[in-house]
Design a protein around this nucleic acid. Structure first.
Lengths: 135, 135
DNA sequence: CATTACTGTAATATTTTTTATTACAGTACA
DNA sequence: TGTACTGTAATAAAAAATATTACAGTAATG
């Protein structure tokens, strides 16, 4: 994951923690993080699908946290935006090579262990704990 | 790190474990993993700089492990190829927003903790242990 | 000492991925 | 019915990763 999606998602959630129960528009959020509102709306759409925020359409609409910040773990955020392994991609090796034939199986096992360790660490932090030093 | 460098580096090291003390050329290695020899040479150059392999130039040249596989930790490989945080990039937020102003400081702390957890897990695996099921 | 078989590295091209932008339909409030 | 939002798709632009080409340098070897 060499993109900005985790930071973006966490920024969105943090803003909501900061303003408590106020509804936020995508334009406002986009302003806080200097990105395009459509990017924010796309990430919001994703966070809604995984149940971290709720949205309200139409005039006066916007977004809210779907649950208390103490019940949101940063691993939830990670899983919401995860696309590829943090250790990167694998090659498509030559199947005629005995090493090439087997290595991706072993890499899968390793990548899972490494990622699990990281995700466990993220699970130890709630949105509330993350935001406390900001608020 | 959404690239293939970790897998490439580990593939190179694994091949060397597999062939024991035989010297390998970049062409041979490139063949095993279906990539361009120049890519392999670049990664080899990097692995040499961090002391994981030794190279010999000229005819009959090639590469060897610089030390026993039991003394190479996968965290060494990770550190050798590391470029960016596994949680991705950060935005350049609006400094006029109190959240935007502070969030990257907190993200840095978090990213370090998360990455440390992953690296510790990688440090628990030696090249030898990784290769055993392949050999 | 010329040939051969390598590494080392830079320059460039190509491909892939990510991000930004634009646009507009749909929704709900007033 | 106008206004202010979300939702989403299509496209463009920018950035990053990878591949390719090329060639200088090095060392073995006949």
């Amino acid at each position: 994951m060499n993109n900005v999606r985790f930071a973006t998602a966490l920024h969105i959630l943090t803003l909501h923690y900061y303003v408590k129960d106020e509804m936020l528009t995508s334009e406002f959020i986009a302003g806080s993080m200097n990105v395009n509102a459509a990017v924010v709306r796309k990430e919001i759409s994703n966070l809604r699908k995984v149940g971290l925020i709720t949205t309200k359409e139409g005039k006066g609409g916007g977004t809210l946290l779907a649950k208390p910040a103490k019940d949101i773990r940063l691993s939830d955020v990670y899983n919401a935006v995860r696309q590829t392994s943090p250790l990167g991609k694998k090659n498509v090796p030559n199947p005629d090579c005995p090493v090439g034939k087997q290595i991706n199986v072993e890499l899968d096992v390793l990548y899972n262990k490494a990622e699990d360790a990281m995700v466990s660490r993220l699970a130890a932090v709630t949105l509330e704990a993350f935001c406390k030093p900001i608020k």
